[in-house]
Design a protein around this nucleic acid. Structure first.
Lengths: 186, 186, 186, 186
DNA sequence: AATGAATGAGACTTCATTCAT
DNA sequence: CATGAATGAAGTCTCATTCAT
């Protein structure tokens, strides 16, 4: 039930899993306490559903941005990465709770936590290798490069989309692109 | 009391803040339940002390690595960053619980969480600007670059120091260095 | 509604009154949850109806056995008691849930519990006194004798009809008859 | 803890297992709710402890009566059975809750329920066989006779010790003895 | 300083019952 | 008559914290 999932996102985002209470979630959703158990088996089950829901939303938001890029002609590998980060920043700005929810999944549902980052890294790696195949990127790219890119993106999102109100997100994604392009040396 | 802090690191690392219990921590530390309150005011206070303790340990571990580098002659800016990451990977390998503890501080003590990353980023930024001053790094380096570097380091640590048993950590820090040196383009 | 009563007998027999759920009973009966309340006012009302239903069934089963006996000529008082026990054993074998349901009525509907045993004892007493009137049984028979006979029957039923699969029920009823006939002394 | 066990006997006796609440039991025992869990793992565990406690009490009460009998010279087998019933009636008079507690154990802890009656029957059978060995009782006594005797006792106890205030218990045990002695025939 | 029994607020979860369709 | 989603009271259990010893 959408109402409960949305209320849970807010509640978990504000309080974290343990401090959040089903009672408070149902109040936010404006349904009776017992109604919760018509839709979810337990607090854990709700949390897992929420993690999957948000994880899917980030992915599709990035995918949508990239698809749009392709509509306007073949983009370069760096264009693609910059767009992925931009989409992510936009999403995180809108759904600041995603950080706290993903982070807490480390405790509530460790498998989901690992799966989230591993699948994200895998998607990044695919894109990087496509760029290498086109001759735009280095030939030696491997999993660790994907994790490095993901780490950059995640922390830039935390700092400039979640913590900073009104940061210039397009500037941030250009900056990240320039690191990927030529590092930080002179 | 050192015994309690060590026991807490293990307990919080294994179970997370909420699932951890004072009773279990005192058992691990082989002291009576009530003794805990002679040394700490509350579970929260213990957690905060632990976060500061670990935060200080990471910092001094990185600082020690860099100091050593300076003993062998003036290192380059990239040498310094590579060494910082190597120290961090070594520390995280030894203290895998640090990730879970820092992550949970987001919920238990958000100020400490922010402070940890902000001060880490500040230190990185100082180093980067020193590199720029020496003419080794770009002149346009700013806070966001430091966050990007920190994000890379954190995620590489998660993937290769915490999750992967026996990964080749020196290879990882070289790989990160090469990204900082020239990005990922051909 | 027969379907609900039968489903309830199984459910209450398996789980006991409190662990049994209306939802599970309606599922067994293959009707919707709400339908239950078309036929019964409450869970308690269902249970009471069930107790009466089963109580009536035991009684009529014993009565039928005795009636059959009379068809074959005037039976002796001991013949009648033996037949009553045999009928009861047969019934209990078929409806093992009766013990649990009657036992639980002690908590759910204490009046029904008392009424069940008091009316059963009364019927036994009537038969015993008829036997005394015919000169076959002692003249001093009173209520307590009826309760003693009932206790024997109930426990033999528990042990040999409910708990023991495939016990020799006719042997059990003969054994009980011999106790009534001459006690257990040499 | 004795206070909790006694409070539980009253509470379970009055309301039955499910209607009884830990909260009400701790109130009767005049301790805080949480204190309960210092002494018992769960409501079930308390109930099991209580069943064992009461079961042990009945047994030792009967054993004490019989021991006393032996002190006054070798008793006959019928003396022993009569004494056992008398002890039981006295105990049940004092602890009317025992019936409800044992009955409910059928649902809460079926194994304990079975064990209670099986061990009781076993003790009766031993005594009966000792009587047979002495030549006082029949040679063909077997388990079913013990169950018959137990059933008599239990139902006489229910009717005259639990339900009837101030019944003449010695008359009841004499009556039971006379059934064992010569049955109910003329 | 150390101990650990006692405390009680708080949270999840169940399920009989209702009622609009 | 039948349905089943929604309700909310009630109850078990956990655990941080206190305090008398």
């Amino acid at each position: 039930m959408r109402k409960l999932l949305d209320a849970a996102a807010v509640e978990f985002g504000e309080k974290g899993f343990h401090a959040a209470s089903i009672s408070s979630i149902t109040q936010r959703a404006a349904v009776a306490l017992g109604t919760f158990y018509t839709y979810f088996d337990s607090k854990d089950a709700l949390f897992q559903a929420l993690v999957q829901d948000m994880s899917a939303q980030v992915k599709s938001s990035a995918a949508a941005g990239i698809a749009q890029l392709h509509d306007a002609g073949e983009p370069s590998a760096l264009d693609v990465e910059q767009s992925a980060l931009a989409s992510f920043l936009a999403f995180a700005s809108e759904h600041k709770e995603i950080y706290r929810i993903i982070d807490e999944s480390e405790f509530v549902d460790p498998a989901a936590y690992k799966a989230h980052y591993e699948s994200t890294a895998a998607r990044i790696l695919e894109r990087l290798q496509a760029g290498a195949d086109k001759g735009e990127l280095r030939d030696d790219l491997e999993e660790a490069h994907a994790w490095a890119v993901m780490g950059m993106n995640v922390f830039l999102g935390l700092r400039y989309a979640v913590w900073a109100e009104g940061a210039d997100e397009s500037k941030v994604s250009q900056l990240a692109r320039s690191i990927l392009e030529r590092g930080i040396t002179k």
